[in-house]
């Protein structure tokens, strides 16, 4: 049952349907041991369904999923001892403290020597060890969820949207914990709709949309292969700038705070735009030229934003 393999996870032609709804549509990918693999996509893309099939919560409609060399539909009992899961929207028992919760989960895994205090320290919850779950903030709850997913010292960790709903500070604190996992050499399958999260943490990213993987590779590869342009942003530009840029053959886009965003292919294009604005006597308060990120890659590949509220050139949050 447990064949030796270089891959922690192998997914072949996986499909999951609910009646007429095709949630996951014939996807295939592999995750190497010790690799952090991110499934990046908007809500409803099929990320969670895919992860829940791999971590044995759901059963596939068709296709084959092998985890640590074992078929997930046949060896659930053996698999659950070797994986750790942070499900989407994780919650725990309200009145149970951080320490008691970790002790409880450790017993469920039949572990007798779990270093509970070490785990609490790993996720920076030492000050909150005797706090009940209901009194923890969103970020602290997620960090507890990550600690729970590590109580059995798993070989593969599944983190389904670990930072969704957290404020930026709490998100960065969770990222620090996840970077610790990466350094510790854990295989991690992460789902997210935050491109910064995928770029920062993942060795490999699969972009998923409407149940299909539409691109896969390292973040650098994905950006290089799919977004060969640069982004020029003119900040607080006056009303004429938009028309001037359009007139010389570019496609400007209004973003928030009167900013204008222009996709350019060469550095010379930037000079041409700036000269045209100067010649026309118009002005802008500042400018920024940067390489595109996974958000733009996703936009280019699918024509839709990763998150509600995202607008080209910046976040609407």
């Amino acid at each position: 049952m447990n064949k030796a393999t270089e891959y922690a996870i192998e997914v072949e032609n996986l499909t999951k349907s609910y009646g007429d709804l095709l949630a996951v549509n014939d996807i295939s990918f592999t995750v190497g041991k010790g690799e952090v693999f991110a499934l990046l996509g908007p809500n409803g893309a099929g990320k969670t369904t895919t992860v829940e099939i791999i971590d044995t919560i759901r059963t596939p409609t068709s296709g084959k999923v092998t985890l640590l060399g074992m078929d997930v539909t046949k060896y659930k009992h053996d698999i659950v001892h070797r994986i750790g899961v942070l499900p989407q929207g994780f919650t725990s028992f309200d009145r149970i403290t951080v320490r008691e919760t970790l002790q409880y989960y450790s017993r469920l895994y039949h572990c007798r020597n779990t270093d509970i205090d070490g785990l609490i320290g790993l996720v920076n919850l030492t000050d909150k060890r005797d706090e009940q779950y209901k009194n923890l903030s969103g970020g602290l709850k997620q960090r507890l969820g990550i600690a729970i997913s590590l109580v059995n010292d798993p070989e593969v960790v599944f983190l389904d949207e670990p930072t969704t709903g957290l404020d930026p500070r709490a998100r960065h604190e969770v990222w620090q914990v996840l970077q610790g996992l990466k350094k510790a050499g854990k295989t991690v399958l992460l789902t997210t709709h935050y491109m910064e999260e995928a770029e920062l943490l993942a060795d490999m990213v699969a972009i998923i949309s409407r149940g299909k993987i539409i691109a896969m590779g390292s973040p650098v590869e994905l950006i290089h292969n799919n977004a060969d342009t640069q982004i020029l942003t003119l900040q607080s530009a006056d009303e004429k700038v938009f028309e001037i840029v359009r007139r010389i053959g570019f496609e400007p886009v209004h973003t928030n705070h009167n900013n204008i965003r222009i996709r350019v292919e060469h550095t010379e294009d930037v000079q041409q735009i700036l000269s045209a604005i100067k010649d026309a006597g118009s002005f802008y308060r500042g400018l920024d030229v940067r390489k595109p990120n996974l958000e733009e890659v996703f936009l280019k590949l699918t024509g839709e934003a990763l998150r509600d509220g995202y607008v080209e050139g910046g976040e609407a949050e």
Partner: peptide, 10 residues
Amino acid sequence: GIIRKLSTTP
């Protein structure tokens, strides 16, 4: 979702 979490444990 606690039942769902528990279903990923032994």
